[in-house]
């Protein structure tokens, strides 16, 4: 972690400001104090940088994941010219009744530094289990959609997308 020269003159004001922006420079380290409430965007609060296997393990533990390629439809381009904006739509076949519905849909990109893209929490009031988003992809990668059903079982489908220009930068 780099020290910035601007924090060498620590007054009460600058210290408070440094705390508020989560300890750039002098007040280093993950904050646990009062400043932590507003500092949700610090590195410690982000998804960790890890391999996709580690992400899957962290999110789903050792739970078995069934092949859901029949039930999950991933709609996204075969080739994404710009990795910064890749539209993806995930639709899961489900009756979406209060007893049988899709609880969560995860979008995970295998080769992103932080593979987890988004997690959607769905309710039966949606009528269909369809969510779409624009995601960033760092390079040509498999994109996984994992659906967690209301009975706790997991389904996964995968699609490869070729990315011409990466869109993550970091």
């Amino acid at each position: 972690m780099e020290k910035t020269s601007s924090t060498s003159r620590i007054t009460r004001r600058t210290l408070l400001r440094a705390l508020a922006v989560a300890g750039l420079g002098g007040a280093a380290g993950p904050l646990l104090g009062p400043g932590a409430i507003t500092a949700q965007g610090t590195l410690g609060a982000l998804q960790p940088e890890e391999k996709v296997e580690a992400t899957m393990k962290r999110l789903f533990g050792g739970r078995p994941i069934k092949d859901g390629s029949g039930a999950i439809k991933i709609d996204m381009p075969l080739i994404a010219e710009n990795g910064a904006v890749v539209p993806i739509t995930v639709e899961v076949q489900s009756p979406m009744t209060p007893t049988n519905y899709v609880k969560h849909i995860y979008i995970i990109s295998d080769k992103n530094r932080r593979p987890m893209n988004a997690r959607f929490t769905l309710t039966p009031a949606m009528g269909t289990a369809l969510v779409g988003a624009n995601v960033r992809l760092g390079e040509t990668t498999d994109v996984r959609a994992v659906a967690e059903l209301s009975d706790g079982s997991l389904l996964m489908a995968k699609r490869e997308v070729k990315v011409t220009v990466g869109g993550c930068g970091g």
Partner: peptide
């Protein structure tokens, strides 16, 4: 009816 936890890998 819907909530989403998004990360920086959203455009």
């Amino acid at each position: 009816i819907l909530a989403a936890d998004t990360t920086q890998s959203v455009s």
